[in-house]
C-alpha cells in the first residue's frame, strides 16, 4: 500500500473528529431551551439556577466552554449527565457491551448469510431461485427495521412463543456461567435477526451483482475453457474481486447497523446505547446525547477509514489521489 496515501488518510482523521466535535457542541448549545430550567423546573429560584449553571460550567462564555469540553473529551471525560448525575463515560461504558453484542452479531451474520445468498443467486442466474432471492432481498431491503422487529415479535415471540418478547436476560433467573450465556443468546436471537435482515438483503444484492459481473470476465472464460470445475471457478477465480463492492460499503454498514440498533433496542427493550440515547433525548440530557453522538460518529468515521485502507490493499488498482 502506498505510504503517502496512508499518511494522508490518517491525517484527515483528527480534522474530521474535530469537525464532528464542533458540530455537536454548537448544535446543542445553540438549541432553544435552557437545560437548567428543564432540570430545576420553571419556578426554581435564581440562586439555585446559578448554582446549577456553575456546577455544569454553563456560566462561562461559549468559546471557553468549547475549549474546556474539547480538552475534557480528549482526556476521555465526556462530562456529567444532567439527569443521572454521573459521568457520561460511565453511563456509556455500562450500555456499550449490549450494543456491541447486538451490532457485532448482526454484522457477522449479515456478512456470512448475505454473501452466501448472493453466491447462491448468481450461480443460478436467471432461474427461479435467483429471482426468489432477488425479490426477497429487494422487499426486505425496503422494509423499515421496526416493522421487521414487530413482525418477528408477533410471529416468533407472541405467536409461536419460541423467544422472549423483550429484555436481555430473564429477570427471575440469577444463574451464572453457561446457562446465563444461553439465556442472553436466547434473548439476543430476535433483535439480532431483525437488525441483520436488512443488511443481509443489501450484502446479498451487492455480492450477487459483483459475482455476476466477474463471471462475465475473460479470465473466467479462460478458466472454464481449461475445464476448471465451476465451484472452483467461483471460489478461486471470481470471488475475491467480486466481493470488492461488499468491502467498499463495510464502513457504511457499521453506521447503518448502529442506527438500526437504536430502533431495534426500542422495539425489543434491549438495554444498550440506543435506549440510553432515547431516554436522554426525552430528558433533554445534553451531555449524554452529545457523548453517544460523538462515539457513534467517530466509530463510523474510523470504520470508513479502515474500509478504504482494506479496499486499497485488496485491489491494488485503486489509488485515491
Amino acid at each position: 500500500m502506498n505510504r503517502r496515501y496512508l499518511v494522508r488518510r490518517l491525517a484527515q482523521l483528527p480534522l474530521t473528529v474535530a469537525a464532528i466535535l464542533l458540530a455537536g457542541f454548537l448544535l446543542i448549545h445553540l438549541a432553544p431551551g435552557d437545560p437548567v430550567v428543564a432540570l430545576a423546573g420553571q419556578s426554581g429560584d435564581a440562586e439555585y439556577y446559578a448554582y446549577l449553571r456553575a456546577k455544569f460550567g454553563l456560566d462561562k462564555p461559549l468559546p471557553t466552554q468549547l475549549v474546556i469540553y474539547a480538552g475534557n473529551v480528549l482526556s476521555g471525560d465526556l462530562g456529567t449527565s444532567y439527569v443521572l448525575g454521573r459521568p457520561v463515560a460511565e453511563a456509556i461504558a455500562e450500555r456499550l457491551p449490549a450494543t456491541v453484542l447486538l451490532t457485532g452479531s448482526a454484522l457477522v451474520l449479515s456478512t456470512v448469510v448475505g454473501i452466501s445468498l448472493g453466491i447462491y443467486g448468481a450461480r443460478r442466474h436467471g432461474r427461479w431461485p435467483d429471482t426468489a432471492v432477488n425479490l426477497t432481498a429487494l422487499t426486505v431491503y425496503a422494509a423499515p427495521v421496526f416493522l421487521i422487529g414487530q413482525l418477528v415479535i408477533l410471529g416468533l415471540a407472541l405467536g409461536a412463543g419460541w423467544f422472549p418478547v423483550e429484555g436481555m436476560t430473564d429477570a427471575r433467573s440469577s444463574v451464572t456461567g453457561l446457562p446465563r450465556l444461553l439465556d442472553i443468546a436466547h434473548h439476543l436471537a430476535l433483535p439480532a435477526l431483525a437488525l441483520t435482515s436488512q443488511e443481509v438483503a443489501a450484502v446479498a444484492r451487492l455480492s450477487r451483482v459483483g459475482l455476476l459481473d466477474e463471471l462475465r470476465q475473460d479470465h473466467i472464460r479462460t478458466a472454464r475453457a481449461k475445464g476448471v470445475a465451476e465451484g472452483v471457478v467461483v471460489r478461486k477465480h471470481a470471488l475475491r474481486r467480486a466481493l470488492l463492492p461488499v468491502v467498499t460499503v463495510l464502513g457504511g454498514r457499521v453506521g447503518h447497523l448502529v442506527a438500526g440498533a437504536v430502533i431495534v433496542e426500542a422495539v425489543f427493550g434491549w438495554p444498550g446505547l440506543g435506549r440510553l440515547l432515547v431516554t436522554a433525548m426525552q430528558n433533554r440530557d445534553g451531555p449524554i446525547v452529545l457523548g453517544v453522538f460523538l462515539l457513534v460518529a467517530v466509530t463510523v468515521v474510523v470504520a470508513n477509514l479502515l474500509t478504504d485502507l482494506l479496499y486499497s490493499w485488496l485491489d491494488p488498482r485503486v489509488r485515491y489521489g
Binding site: I20, G24, V262, V289, A297, N304
Partner: peptide, 15 residues
Amino acid sequence: VLPRFFLALVVIAFF
C-alpha cells in the same frame, strides 16, 4: 461518512 440518522436525531432532539 457522517451518520445522517444520528445527526437528524440530535437536531430533532434539541430543536
